[in-house]
């Protein structure tokens, strides 16, 4: 009989990981407190939602929400553009390939990581307190949001660029900054554009809910109608958002394919 190599023992990660995952999942579901009695009682309320949700009041929504919807899109456009262009130079500093000083690399990298830990709506809440209610707070929140994501994606892309052109530029007498500008930047520009489109999509989604904490956009209208359970007024707004989000997504998928 042929000699068959012995099957390797399961790895340590699997030995600890599987039981822990299952145990933690069960524990989490208990912590959430699913209670069948409560669920049954609440489930009788479903008509409160479904009756109104599937009975959209189109006229009301078009009359009252179109202005806010435009505001939402404007917030997303401005914030994603600002955030991504602020992140562009930052990510060169947060990459090992283009920043040789370990200290500054570490500072920029942890700064971007730190921003990324705070959820978008937490930023929105903080900015509404700091600069007042309104779309400006929303723009600032999404600037932080898009800056963090772009910084992470782009700095990781810069990590893996071809270092040859950078060296060539330096060999022909370019200073470090000039070399980065002329040899590293063109390499990542297609990625930058693709990431920008992706972040713009994320911002459109995020800007919809900013209004729930008073940071402008269509969420403001959703919030006031939600409190009175006027789902018949909310559902057309949700459908508008759906159409816009899917439309922008299709457009950016098309454009990304053209660029990359």
């Amino acid at each position: 009989m042929n000699k068959v190599p012995k099957k390797p023992l399961p790895s340590l990660l699997a030995v600890i990981g599987y039981p822990f995952t299952i145990a933690f999942s069960i524990f989490s579901f208990f912590q959430i407190g699913f209670n069948l009695e409560d669920f049954k009682r609440n489930f009788a309320n479903r008509r409160l939602v479904t009756d109104t949700l599937f009975n959209p009041k189109w006229d009301w929504a078009i009359e009252n929400a179109s202005q806010a919807l435009i505001e939402t899109i404007q917030i997303a456009i401005l914030a994603s553009i600002l955030g991504c262009f602020i992140a562009l130079p930052l990510s060169f500093y947060a990459s090992r390939a283009t920043n040789q000083t370990t200290t500054t690399y570490f500072i920029y990298k942890s700064f971007l990581n730190f921003i990324r830990t705070i959820p978008d709506l937490f930023w929105a809440m903080l900015f509404t307190v700091a600069v007042g209610l309104g779309p400006f707070a929303g723009v600032l929140a999404l600037v932080m949001f898009s800056m963090a994501i772009m910084g992470k994606l782009l700095s990781e892309t810069i990590d893996s660029i071809d270092l040859g052109p950078l060296e060539a530029a330096k060999a022909s007498g370019a200073k470090h900054n000039q070399a980065v500008f002329s040899s590293a930047l063109p390499q990542i520009l297609p990625n930058f554009t693709a990431y920008f489109l992706y972040i713009f999509e994320l911002c459109i989604r995020a800007s919809v809910i900013l209004g729930l904490v008073g940071a402008g956009g269509v969420g403001r209208i959703i919030e006031t109608q939600r409190i009175f359970l006027r789902f018949d007024r909310i559902s057309p707004i949700i459908i508008f958002i759906l159409v816009i989000v899917i439309g922008i997504e299709q457009f950016s998928v098309w454009l990304r394919r053209k660029i990359l």
């Binding site: 912590q31 669920f39 609440n42 489930f43 479903r46 939602v49 359970l229």
Partner: peptide, 8 residues
């Protein structure tokens, strides 16, 4: 309104 206030 269906599943109630809370983590569920």
């Amino acid at each position: 309104p269906i599943t109630g206030l809370g983590p569920l």
